[in-house]
Write a protein that binds this DNA or RNA. Structure first.
Length: 497
RNA sequence: GAGCCAUUAGCUCAGUCGGUAGAGCACCUGACUUUUAAUCAGGGUGUCACAGGUUCGAAUCCUGUAUGGCUCACCA
């Protein structure tokens, strides 16, 4: 907001005039530290159960602070509701029980002002536990009106751009973000108690590896060095497995320079976890148990509803191989040996869109993504991904066209990706090399060569199971939010004048 | 990046066939010492997203632009 007072409309001018009046009355409208004895909810929890008379006889004096959300002045007395982090409580002020100036301050209060009040808890004739004010402090004057007190703020653009207002007037928004915090806490608790070590690895990488995605590019001035914002946590965490840390995880932001949708934000939070001496099957069990644990911890149940669909998170979850899933849901059998040409012909027959660099494995994946994914509503582990799309996963020992990898689908969305980690440095180098060939054929998201990572594998990595969980999508699922923007406090928006 | 839709007061929304802007909350003035969507009496506070065009006349019709939403593409 500019300082051009001449540009302000009446609503804003009035508040600035009140600001001056408060100062004339000897009140500093932007106050200092205020020691509270209670939050609003603490008072209600403690005393709501008692009758008017019982509360009166208990003679409880409290100090609370918060934002004025409603105000009803009636001549020589008045009511207001004060909102703090815990909720709301009503205050009642009488002209004969505070100083003349304090009552004037109440008269001057606007919705949105932040005040501190000191007083005695009582119950009104209508039965609402309230505070009779003996002392009133203004802690922060609000110079801009809040949205409508009943309809709240509905304009989604304003809600995302000015989340601070959204949080004030739409209580369920705060609930969602408290749940988000609880979900992450529960995940930490679960993995910590299994002996995993939480680590932090760099977010700026010289090589953007560990996933197929376009990175953000940045630059370090002193080293005159091009850097990428990380697109995954994977390669550093596996270096830690080489280093003998054995069970590690990281919860961190990753950045992908790609489209924005209800399921994609350019920066999002991943949990990646690696367990030495495990494999994709042990990770499957870990994954279903972890998510079921979190659901119980946060929601108290594993039976949830997402956008009208009943979802049962009780383990064990369905397990099906990718080619079996294609057979089951699309009626196409791709399991037998076949040439790239045969696969292409099948793709054409079933109207599967493919690109020039694609071989058998890519085409299997396209069949899956275009025909099967949307049908996987209940939690389903799809395993056995083609080697072409899994450059960091170990090949299956029976059928080297596929890897020991799985993705977890719930409500038709990928929620996790995991595999038995490739620990053969020679195979890893060959995989990187074929990724480089794909890059030449036009796949600009193909993986880059990472010599130091191969060197780490040369030192020797134990057989390892690894997991990645998209935290934002998990939060969407468990909080029943339709858009990723509803689980990100500040989703990316286009810049505006 | 493409398609569809939206943008009117601080907020939530009406606005008919193209005829000169309207309601609730908020706000302002006054009354009111247990109200609670307080009530009562009075007051409309506006770059109709922006820029053009058509027309005697545009919030309304047309074109373009901006921002947002949804779907699709890319991806997780």
């Amino acid at each position: 907001m500019s300082q051009e007072v001449v540009d302000l409309n009446d609503l804003l001018l009035v508040r600035r005039q009140k600001l001056a009046e408060l100062r004339e009355l000897g009140f500093e409208p932007f106050g200092y530290k205020y020691e509270r004895t209670h939050t609003a909810q603490e008072i209600l929890d403690e005393l709501n159960q008692f009758s008017k008379e019982e509360i009166e006889s208990r003679d409880v004096n409290v100090k609370i602070a918060g934002r004025v959300m409603s105000k009803r002045l009636q001549g020589k007395a008045g009511f207001a509701h004060i909102q703090d982090v815990s909720g709301r409580i009503q205050i009642y002020i009488r002209k004969d029980q505070v100083t003349e100036n304090e009552f004037k301050v109440f008269d001057l209060l606007d919705l949105g002002d932040i005040i501190g009040v000191e007083g005695k808890v009582f119950k009104t004739n209508k039965g609402e536990t309230s505070i009779k004010v003996y002392k009133l402090h203004i802690l922060s004057k609000s110079l801009y009106p809040l949205p409508d007190k009943f309809h709240g703020l509905k304009d989604v653009e304003l809600r995302y751009r000015q989340r601070y207002i959204d949080l004030i007037v739409n209580p369920e928004v705060k609930e969602t973000f408290i749940m988000r915090s609880n979900i992450i806490k529960a995940l930490r608790k679960y993995f910590d108690q299994l002996g995993f070590i939480e680590v932090e690895t760099p977010t700026m990488h010289a090589i953007a590896g560990g996933a197929s995605a376009r990175p953000f590019i940045t630059h370090h001035n002193a080293l005159d060095m091009q850097l990428y914002m990380r697109i995954a946590l994977e390669l550093h965490l596996k270096r830690l497995i080489v280093g003998g840390m054995e069970k590690v995880y990281e919860i961190g932001r990753v950045f992908r320079n790609e489209g924005i949708s209800t399921r994609h934000n350019p920066e999002f939070t991943m949990l990646e976890l690696y367990e030495a001496y495990g494999d994709y099957k042990s990770i499957m069990e870990l994954t279903e148990n972890a998510i079921a644990y979190v659901a119980k911890e946060v929601l108290g149940t594993t039976k949830i509803e997402y956008q009208g669909q009943e979802i049962n998170l009780d383990p064990p979850w369905e397990r099906i191989s990718m080619v079996d899933a294609i057979k089951k849901y699309a009626g196409v059998d791709l399991s037998g040996q076949m040439s790239d040409e045969e696969a292409r012909r099948l793709a054409k027959k079933y109207n599967i869109q493919i690109e020039p660099h694609m071989t058998y494995g890519h085409i299997v994946n396209e069949f899956f993504e275009q025909l099967v994914e949307e049908k996987l509503v209940q939690p389903t582990f799809v395993y056995g991904h083609p080697v072409e799309i899994s450059p960091l996963a170990k090949k299956n020992d029976k059928d080297p066209r596929f890897t020991d990898r799985f993705e977890l689908f719930i409500v038709s969305r990928e929620h996790a990706n995991a595999f038995t980690e490739l620990n053969d440095p020679i195979d890893q180098r060959e995989r990187f090399e074929s990724q480089l060939k794909e890059r030449e054929l036009g796949n600009d998201e193909a993986h880059e060569m990472d010599e130091d990572f191969i060197h780490a594998l040369e030192i020797g990595m134990p057989p390892t199971g690894g997991l990645g969980i998209g935290i934002d999508r998990l939060v969407m699922l468990l909080t029943n939010q339709p858009s990723i923007r509803d689980v990100l406090l500040f989703p990316l928006m286009r810049e505006r004048d």
